[in-house]
Design a protein around this nucleic acid. Structure first.
Length: 415
RNA sequence: GCCCCCAUCGACUAGCGGUCCAGGUCGCGGCCCUUUCAAGGCCGUAGCGCGGGUUCGAAUCCCGCUGGGGGCACCA
């Protein structure tokens, strides 16, 4: 039996990071099993907003490298089929009309049970399950009817979804049984909390995939981090490529307890991925990110400055704050330290060649001449040139900045 | 209120009866390196929620408690 799973976002807004983690698990499982991963939009109406949301969802998924097989399907398109089935169930006595709506007749005795792939066996007494509405009095099928029906029609073999659906599962199983469909295997993955143990929301920080993208996180780092939220291949491995994730993923090893989203660890991991990038690839991504986020900085200079920051930033969005002085004017004054700054200016005024190496030699000479420790001498120069006490390497920065601008900034700061 | 689920360092987790006076990673602290900040190296900090069982032996199995979460819609 070939595996078929589905990702079922509701088109109510932008893609939530918690939902994406669930989609990632579907994707990893499907790819590993050589199965199909479907994209199903659970919309109950069709509006411009829905269309936009769907585009947004596709875009975010693709950015992360989570793809799907075949065309996305829309729940709305199958409402007629649902109504037909509901009528049949009524005719068979398995459902009944109730004030214009159609309700499903749940079994009164016994229990409904399934072996959840992550939770283990779950049993629910049938007497505690109410007769759910299948079709509303206005004719629209409900989620608890449409969703399992679509699972049947699509031949879904494994339903991998958030654990907020655990209590819907026995209802859906009974409905599938009533229509004679195959019951898929279920895997309910735990939810993701914020740092206060409450459900992850904007309060805690970024929650939409888009926000992470805008902040300059790398998709491969996001995928690695998300995969490790509620799943681990062993107790040692942390950094894993997409291929390794696919190869090692298993639903049986998905944790049954919820986990907190640790932004600090994500930052660390993203830094790991940034540093692991080949120099030119990193430069390339920086240029793209800057272009997409409203910076019209010289691409060539960005590429040249990329190596200076690759070891220092944890996300692409850190670049402007760190290397912006190369592209925009700075304001700085070094009152009390004018002497070393002016000496530096004089030493660099006619320096040939104007390279990081020669600049370093010249400035070390200046500092030594004045009897200063490197730290004492270089810091005022750094402030004068970069406008900040924190910067990329000073000598490389000065080389990139160029003689003219450097001298002007040194003079201005000492004034 | 009723149903269901969950419980190892601050966080993510490994552990599926002895190899665990509990291992890895982030964070945090210290040291080294060092032109700042990072990165990197080394060292360290910190945990099996509580109470009963079962067993020669329990983080691991069972029960209860406590704490947390989800659901109980003609929402999805």
């Amino acid at each position: 039996m070939s595996v078929v799973v589905r990702m079922a976002p509701s088109p109510t807004g932008f893609l939530h990071i918690g939902g994406v983690r669930t989609f990632l698990f579907n994707w990893l499982f499907a790819r590993q099993q050589g199965g199909r991963n479907l994209l199903r939009i659970e919309n109950t109406d069709t509006t411009r907003e829905v269309a936009e949301a769907v585009d947004q969802i596709k875009d975010s998924l693709l950015w992360l490298g989570i793809d799907w097989d075949g065309e996305p399907t829309f729940q709305l398109d199958r409402m007629d089929d649902c109504r037909e089935i509901a009528q049949r169930l009524v005719a068979e006595g398995k459902a009944y009309e109730d004030e214009g709506a159609i309700r499903f007749r749940m079994p009164d005795e016994g229990a409904t049970a399934w072996d959840d792939l992550v939770r283990g066996r779950i049993e629910v007494a049938n007497e505690t399950i109410e007769d759910v509405v299948l079709v509303r009095s206005d004719g629209r099928p409900t989620y608890n009817f449409a969703s399992p029906m679509e699972d049947v029609w699509d031949g879904i073999t494994h339903v991998i979804r958030g654990d907020d659906h655990v209590s819907n599962t026995p209802k859906q199983i009974n409905i599938i049984r009533a229509v004679g469909g195959d019951i898929p295997a279920y895997a309910h993955v735990p939810s993701i909390f914020g740092t206060d143990g409450k459900k992850l929301s904007k309060r805690h920080g970024a929650v939409r995939v888009n926000e992470f993208r805008d902040a300059g996180y790398l998709p491969e780092a996001m995928v690695n981090f998300l995969a490790l939220l509620g799943w681990a291949p062993d107790g040692e491995t942390t950094i894993m490529s997409r291929d390794e994730l696919v190869a090692r993923f298993s639903l049986e090893r998905v944790s049954s307890s919820p986990s907190q989203f640790d932004y600090a660890k994500l930052d660390w991991m993203n830094g790991m991925y940034i540093r692991a990038l080949p120099e030119d690839e990193f430069a390339h991504r920086l240029v793209l990110w800057l272009g997409e986020h409203g910076y019209d900085w010289d691409a060539e200079l960005v590429r040249k400055s990329a190596p200076l920051v690759q070891e220092k930033i944890s996300k692409l969005g850190d670049f402007p704050g760190f290397a912006g002085f190369l592209f925009e004017d700075v304001e700085a004054s070094v009152d009390g330290n004018a002497e070393v700054v002016l000496a530096a200016r004089d030493a660099l005024a006619a320096l040939e060649p104007f390279t990081a190496e020669s600049i370093e030699a010249a400035l070390r000479g200046v500092v030594e001449e004045l009897g200063l420790k490197p730290r004492q001498g270089f810091q005022p120069i750094r402030v004068a040139v970069t406008g900040s006490t924190v910067s990329p390497g000073l000598f490389e920065s000065i080389e990139l900045l160029g003689r003219e601008t450097t001298l002007a900034r040194l003079s201005a700061a000492a004034a």
